[in-house]
Nucleic acid binder design. Structure first.
Lengths: 209, 209
DNA sequence: CTGAATATGACCCCAAAGGGCTATTTTTTG
DNA sequence: CAAAAAATAGCCCTTTGGGGTCATATTCAG
């Protein structure tokens, strides 16, 4: 059974090339190709894989990802674009894209990407993968520098996130409840928050603990 | 000028195969290969790319990444391992690996990876890329747990996580503070918690919002 | 060595949160 | 339609938390 492919690309020339490229392989079958998201949603039927441009008239490819995913929940989405900036890459990934390939990539790699996402993997061209990974590394750096809190404050922060009351924290650390409260006040000031709920949200979202 | 490659792999058989594979290409040159991190650090000299196993005697490949990077700051590190769990993948990336390839990958892909990282990109096999991307998407675990809560309760949960007081929540939802308190009590009962700090921790850890 | 940062502890005040009730209206669902 | 679930709102009382100010011992870095 051939892999069915849908294509959304507004440049007619390039769209034709894509259709030709993908159709040239026996295992793949282009079941539709359109110049806009709206047409694809309206007229396209369930594909295994969608090749999706980002710069499109009216609705962008980024917005279309969720739409396609909700309409065809099993379809894999491969972004195929010239855009290789952090915003577009990360947004596509967060929205659920399974692959992100640059148009300048060698055509064989586009076919590889189709196969890879169809097999349940993800497909990223090396330069895109690089960006994704460096985003990770930056996250780690921020984590490390986030130690504005003193050792004691971090201990108490951990207790707060565990849901302990001040009395329990005091008992656990063998200090008075007053001292716990003072540390908490200092933590609040440093993190610019005003309640335990806020401090827990901040600590977990910014992976401070 | 050929790309110089260093290899750290403790299985002698597989190490030999790797040396043979990489050396078979004119553009690549294996300048050293060792069975442990310690040997590589001591005897190896600056390579362009290091192929690095994770399961190694004494020091693991994960720990070695930082070491190699500090010794040879321009060297690219490609993990080559059978481990494809989240911990190993993410740790390798956070520690600065430029590639993560599974041993079961087709040999040509290993050579591709060397070229890709040498060219300044990153190399991930599709299944690894998949894991990295799903980490990004913050793929909420089971939705069932969240659906214990009613729509209203989820709205209020979101407000709590945002750090709002009951009064603010009431004002925002155009209901009385008492009603907010009642909803919160119900949320606490359903989630088996007893404070806002606990509910925030639970909601964020279990990705309920 | 000395001053700054940290850790400890206390006081007051009152706002906020939490637990236990009951009760009505609306919405959902079998 | 009738029962169940959800949303609304009120009451009581107690505990906890948040903000301000002050004070002392210890630790750490210039």
């Amino acid at each position: 059974m051939a892999v069915s492919v849908g294509i959304v690309e507004d440049h007619a020339e390039f769209r034709k090339s894509l259709v030709f490229l993908v159709s040239s392989i026996e295992d793949y079958k282009v079941i539709w190709s359109f110049g806009s998201v709206e047409e694809a949603i309206e007229k396209g039927y369930t594909p295994d894989v969608v090749l999706l441009d980002i710069n499109l008239p009216r609705m962008t490819g980024l917005e279309a990802i969720a739409l396609f995913k909700s309409k065809w929940s099993d379809a894999k989405i491969v972004m195929l674009t010239i855009l290789e900036d952090e915003y577009n890459i990360l947004t596509a990934i967060k929205n659920g894209a399974d692959g992100y390939i640059l148009k300048k990539t060698n055509p064989q790699k586009i076919l590889d990407a189709i196969q890879q996402v169809f097999d349940g993997g993800a497909a990223l061209t090396p330069m895109v993968a690089k960006q994704v990974l460096s985003f990770f590394k930056d996250e780690k750096k921020e984590q490390e520098q986030a130690s504005i809190l003193t050792k004691r404050e971090q201990e108490i922060l951990t207790c707060i996130v565990s849901g302990l009351t001040n009395d329990k924290i005091a008992a656990m650390l063998f200090i008075s409840t007053q001292t716990v409260r003072n540390h908490i006040k200092n933590i609040y000031e440093k993190l610019h928050v005003h309640s335990k709920a806020q401090v827990v949200a901040k600590a977990l979202k910014e992976k401070m603990i």
